[in-house]
Design a protein around this nucleic acid. Structure first.
Lengths: 340, 340
DNA sequence: CGAAAAAACCAAAGCGCTTTGGAAGGCTCT
DNA sequence: AGAGCCTTCCAAAGCGCTTTGGTTTTTTCG
């Protein structure tokens, strides 16, 4: 069933039927009702290919998915997707993932924009001076950055959490509890979020005249194993830290294992705070010693970004507004005063 | 730059240019070279919207993504996606995720097929008599099922792992080691994979005249917390199992925690085998007691399914061939003979 | 009542590609 | 030389929608 058939059936022109269906004003309400009714009854659905050819609108939002044998998609992605998908569903938006060589995502961004394959895109895991952000903003397609870049000479729209503030608070608390040797087990420090977190920790320490010791900061892919290795290395040093801030729950698993392997305890020998993106399948309160966290739902971020993208597509949102969400600091059993 | 301009520039018809570019035989090789060369030089890229309107081909594969506030996307999904994306990239395929109400995915399948939004789809987490499989196969779009349904009165193409065999082997090993009271901590038993695993365990036990005791099988969403709860419940029973087979590494984390909380040890008091889908961020060999596993890379499955979908799209694969991959049984420190 | 304005509708021209149905020209072969 | 066959190219007809630029009918109002 296509427009032609439907309009013939109603003894109307395609023009009128199309307008009736798309809510244009120049059609009699009575006629519109007839049309809508008939469309529903016959299960008419406009062919999206035709529509997009005519309008350029696709009803899809795009994401360039870095791939490669050595590339691991972040497990956070799936939670983000839950939020994004949930919003997108309610707005009849689809998401298209365009796989790209992790080292050359720009070609793919160019392609999906040139081809008009999507109405908007989002960018995640931005780095300082991220070329994707620069590219996409010159390409002129609506977009939102999840996170922030740095050192770009123009503004752009983003939704980020206050990583610096969160880790500042966490470190400040630890310092207040008397800890003097802190360590940071961070994610990949080529990404802005990790840089901000480190900055937060350093700022808190500096406020008390402390510093993040040489060798007291690790920056690694966020796996359990890396958490373990980092923690072991830190704890076996002569000036081992008495408190650790950790960038992910998964790494924290490794930290806990290392502590146990070394015959130490949390929080007796080591206070631990980790960042929690709120996974349904791994909860900080369920660690054998409940884990203190800086908490921010990545799922909510996904939904918010979908919402903003939708707004931008329909022209409701413009400009380069960035928003920064506060992060909760949730104290549980894994922190205590520094050992004597 | 569109076809019209390009052909005008070359003083050729659109027909010829189109054919030259698409590899049709009825064009002089010399001409073809000229065309291809000019196209490249001017960066001509056929507009996909136009092409799909004309041909019906989209260059995209579809997946209906169950969403909803209470719906958690399986963290396995992201690994699967890595494999799928990696293959898709090399074949210029994009993936479109259509979010749907988890309880009504069929409407969405209908839509994406009716709209010709994608060339093929895949279905994951199938259940017995899965209506999606039935629907999609009547809809006549190329598809592959990741996993298997059961009790359908027709054949369909799938790629699955030998869940029954894997858990049969695991249980058989445990029985051989003298265990008499086994338990199974399974995933959602509305899904076929879980049913198969339970079947495998039961079959192995039956071979030695044993049974899976009442209350010795749990079926829950695969979270750390559920693993913990299930293990506690099992181990606090009077006839506590001496060995557990567990459907996921994440649940196994919870099991390990429960064992520790109860002051027991692995493998002294409890032997444990879990299924490992091979995550880069959580490895069984890194458990404090290295975990024995049934292992099968879900990432490889993603790549394979992309490959088969591509083959089906281009007509290279037909029919309802199902393939079942064997699963490795990897013995590590978490299993030993039954306690006296 | 008649002119101007508003309302309701329509025919046809795109959007950019593929594909059908020829046509022109050059070869082969008898 | 002419029939018949390739080879190579082209004009034009879709694909199914939106939108432009009217036209016709109805309403408004001095």
């Amino acid at each position: 069933m296509n427009l032609k058939q439907l309009s013939h059936m109603l003894a109307l022109s395609q023009t009128t039927v199309s307008r009736a269906l798309n809510g244009y004003p120049e059609v009699n309400e009575e006629t519109r009702r007839r049309v809508i009714d008939a469309a529903k009854r016959h299960g008419y659905r406009p062919n999206p290919s035709a529509r997009r050819l005519a309008t350029g609108k696709t009803g899809m939002i795009g994401y360039v998915l870095p791939t490669g044998a050595a590339v691991d998609i972040d497990p956070h992605f799936v939670e983000f997707l839950s939020g994004l998908g949930d919003y997108a569903r309610s707005h009849e938006l689809d998401l298209v993932l365009s796989p790209a060589d992790a080292d050359d995502q720009e070609t793919t961004y160019r392609r999906i924009v040139a081809n008009r394959q999507v109405d908007a895109v989002y960018i995640s895991s931005p780095r300082p001076a991220d070329r994707r952000v620069a590219l996409v903003s010159t390409l002129g397609i609506p977009f939102i950055v999840h996170g922030r870049s740095e050192g770009l000479d123009f503004d752009y729209p983003f939704t980020d959490i206050d990583n610096e503030g969160a880790f500042h608070e966490a470190a400040r608390l630890l310092v207040q509890l008397g800890h003097r040797r802190l360590a940071l087990i961070n994610g990949d420090d080529r990404e802005t979020f990790a840089i901000h977190r480190e900055r937060g920790v350093r700022r808190a320490l500096a406020a008390s005249g402390l510093v993040l010791g040489e060798g007291h900061v690790c920056s690694l892919a966020m796996t359990e194993e890396n958490g373990y290795r980092a923690a072991r290395r830190l704890l076996e040093q002569s000036d081992a830290p008495t408190a650790i801030a950790c960038s992910s729950l998964i790494m924290a698993l490794g930290v806990v294992r290392a502590v146990r392997d070394l015959g130490l305890t949390i929080p007796g020998d080591l206070s631990l705070i980790a960042h929690d993106d709120v996974f349904p399948w791994l909860k900080p309160e369920n660690f054998s010693v409940p884990l203190s966290t800086t908490r921010s739902s990545i799922r909510l971020a996904g939904a918010r970004i979908a919402e903003r993208l939708a707004a931008r597509i329909s022209g409701l949102e413009e400009g380069a507004r960035g928003e920064v969400w506060p992060v909760d600091l949730v104290i549980r059993g894994s922190v205590t005063g520094a050992p004597a």
